[in-house]
Simulated scan of single mutants.
Amino acid sequence: MTELTRKLQFSLEIDGDWPPISSEAVWCDLVGASFQLRNAPFFIKGLAVNDIFEAEPDPVNGHIFEFQVTEPSDHSLIWILNNTQVDADPILAQLRDIGCSTEGLQRFSLYAVDVPPHVPDQELNTLLDTAESTGLDLAFPVWRRS
C-alpha cells in the first residue's frame, strides 16, 4: 500500500434485511481527484476491481453515499452466497486457479469474486455452473464479459 491508498467507507442501502450491514469499507487508490478500487466489494453494486470512480465523502461521517464510475475496468464481480452450507472451498480454489481472486465474509457465508479479463470464459462458465448445481447462489453485480 502507498500513501495514496486508503479505505473508503460506503453507505449501503438496506432493502428488507439485506445487506446485513449498513456500510462497507474497501481499499482505494487516489488517482488525481478520483479513486480506483483495489479489492472486490461484498455489497457495493456497480463497482469492480480497478474501476476509477468519482465520489465525495460526506463531510460529517466520511461515508460515500453516491459514486460515478468514470473509467470502468475490464473486471467483473460475482457474489457467491452459501445458503445451503455446502463446502464452497473447492469451487473458490478452482476460481483462484483460473486467475480470479476471492474474498470471504464467513459470518454471512458470502464470497466476492474478482474476475479479471484474462480468465478463460469456458472454464469460468463451467465453474459457475458447478457452483449453482451444488446449491450456491450467484449474483453478478458487475458483468463485463462478452
Rank of each mutant, 00 (worst) to 15 (best):
L12R: 04
S109E: 13
D129F: 09
N83I: 14
L37T: 12
G104M: 13
Q106R: 13
P120W: 04
D74E: 14
E66F: 13
P117D: 06
L95M: 04
F67W: 08
F67P: 09
F42N: 01
A88P: 08
E132I: 12
V119I: 04
Q36E: 11
D74M: 06
I44A: 00
P41N: 04
R96K: 06
W27H: 11
P41A: 02
Q85F: 15
N39D: 12
S133P: 10
T126A: 03
I91Y: 00
E56G: 01
V119Y: 00
E71P: 05
P72Q: 08
L127H: 01
S22K: 04
E123I: 14
Q36G: 03
Q85S: 12
L12T: 10
P20N: 11
V31M: 03
N61I: 13
F53T: 10
C28S: 07
N125G: 04
D29R: 06
S109P: 13
Y111Q: 01
I80L: 05
D17M: 14
N50Y: 14
E103P: 01
N82A: 03
E54K: 07
L30I: 15
Q68K: 09
E66D: 14
L37Q: 05
E54M: 07
P72D: 10
Q122P: 10
L37K: 02
P41M: 03
L12V: 10
P116W: 06
G32D: 13
V31D: 07
T126Q: 09
F108R: 05
S22R: 09
Q36S: 06
N125W: 06
F67L: 08
S133C: 08
T84P: 08
D121T: 08
F108E: 11
I80G: 00
E71W: 11
P20E: 13
P117L: 00
K45H: 14
H118L: 01
K45I: 15
